Computed example of a mutant assay.
Amino acid sequence: MAWTVGEVAKRCGIKVSTLHFYEKKGLIYSSRNAGNQRRYQKEVLRRVSVIKAAQKMGITLEEIKQAFASLPDERVPSAEDWEVLATKWRESLNQRIAYMERVRDRLTGCIGCGCLSMKSCPMYNKDDQLENEGPGPVLLERN
Rank of each mutant, 00 (worst) to 15 (best):
D128E: 04
A69P: 01
Y40N: 11
D127S: 15
Q55V: 14
N125E: 07
I14Y: 03
Y22S: 00
W82D: 13
N132S: 07
V84I: 04
Y99A: 05
V16M: 09
Q41E: 08
N94G: 10
G109A: 05
L27T: 14
K56V: 04
M123G: 06
K42M: 11
I111S: 13
S30T: 13
A79P: 04
V5C: 01
S17P: 10
S120G: 08
Q37G: 09
G112V: 11
V5W: 00
L139R: 08
E80I: 08
S31H: 04
I111N: 15
C115K: 14
H20L: 01
L140W: 13
N33Y: 06
D127A: 15
L85Y: 02
K10A: 06
R104A: 09
G136W: 00
E7A: 07
T108G: 14
L61W: 14
E63R: 05
K10G: 04
I64C: 02
R104K: 12
G58D: 04
R11H: 11
V44M: 00
L19N: 15
Q55R: 15
L116F: 10
A79C: 08
Y22R: 01
G6Q: 05
R39E: 11
T18F: 03
C110R: 00
A98S: 04
G58C: 06
S117T: 13
G114I: 07
E63D: 09
G136K: 02
T108H: 15
E83T: 15
T4K: 00
Y124G: 04
G134I: 11
K119D: 15
L116D: 15
R90Q: 14
K126R: 10
H20D: 02
G109D: 06
D73G: 00
K24I: 12
Q37K: 10
V44A: 02
G112L: 06
I59P: 01
R46D: 10
V48T: 02
F21S: 13
A69Y: 04
E80N: 05
I14L: 05
G134T: 12
I59Q: 08
P77W: 08
F68A: 08
V44D: 01
F21D: 10
R39F: 08
T18R: 04
C121G: 06
N143H: 11
L19T: 13
R104N: 09
P137V: 03
M1G: 13
K52Q: 14
Y29M: 02
Y40P: 12
L139H: 06
G134Y: 12
R38I: 01
P77H: 09
M57S: 12
S31G: 11
L71E: 05
P122N: 05
M123P: 00
L85W: 03
W89F: 10
L130Y: 12
A54K: 09
K24C: 07
E74D: 12
G136S: 03
P137R: 09
V84M: 02
S17E: 14
